[in-house]
């Protein structure tokens, strides 16, 4: 195990994970809004936001897929030590983390079953930048319309067409997170 794997977790898990979850909840409930999220210091290339999401949501019961550029000993050891999440291939993952290029093609991920659409993957997509410029978002959680710097539109439109099945997405950059549930309509502008 890499020595840094032991560091950078929550120092007060009950309270830090509670605050992080509230950011994650607001982000998923209000697609296109950006939320600060912190409390941990994960090893590079994991962003603070991605690392905190993993600490908050993953444990021994949630298989996690690391995209190729994140599938590094230091990341694997950190995730394993702090969460115990089994590291798996894309098709078996409940959570996945990596760059958009890492996670392509996204049709490898679980979209849930017709009678259990909740059994779908959540993708944590690491972004070089995260802003309110980009494709137009409408749907649940959005009063009129929102904009978000998505890595592309086609994949999310295809995912929306699967509703109520489909994967759900967090976009992370630094200590910021945005959410894009499967229910959001995405249009290029």
């Amino acid at each position: 195990m890499t020595p840094d794997a032991l560091l950078g977790g929550f120092t007060d898990a009950p309270r830090q994970s509670a605050r992080a979850f509230r950011a994650a909840l607001e982000a998923m409930a209000r697609p296109g809004t950006l939320w600060p999220i912190d409390g941990a210091a994960p090893p590079a290339p994991l962003s603070v936001a991605a690392g905190v999401l993993i600490l908050t949501l993953c444990d021994g019961t949630t298989p996690l897929h690391l995209g190729p550029s994140y599938d590094l000993p230091v990341v694997r050891d950190w995730v394993t030590f702090h969460t115990g999440a089994p590291l798996v291939a894309a098709k078996d993952a409940q959570f996945a983390c990596g760059t958009w290029a890492d996670l392509m093609p996204v049709d490898r991920f679980a979209i849930g079953l017709p009678d259990y659409p909740d059994r779908a993957a959540t993708l944590i997509v690491e972004m070089p930048a995260l802003t309110n410029q980009g494709p137009r978002l409408t749907g649940p959680g959005i009063a009129t319309a929102a904009h978000l710097s998505l890595p592309e539109t086609a994949a999310f439109r295809a995912n929306r067409a699967l509703f109520p099945q489909g994967f759900d997405t967090y976009l992370t950059c630094g200590a910021q997170v945005a959410g894009l549930p499967r229910s959001t309509n995405v249009e290029a502008v």
């Binding site: 993953c58 959680g141 109520p164």
Partner: peptide, 20 residues
Amino acid sequence: EQTKRMIRRAILKGVAIPGY
């Protein structure tokens, strides 16, 4: 904490699939 994580994951899926 493990119970809270399990509930939090369910809440997020609920939010992603309104009414389900």
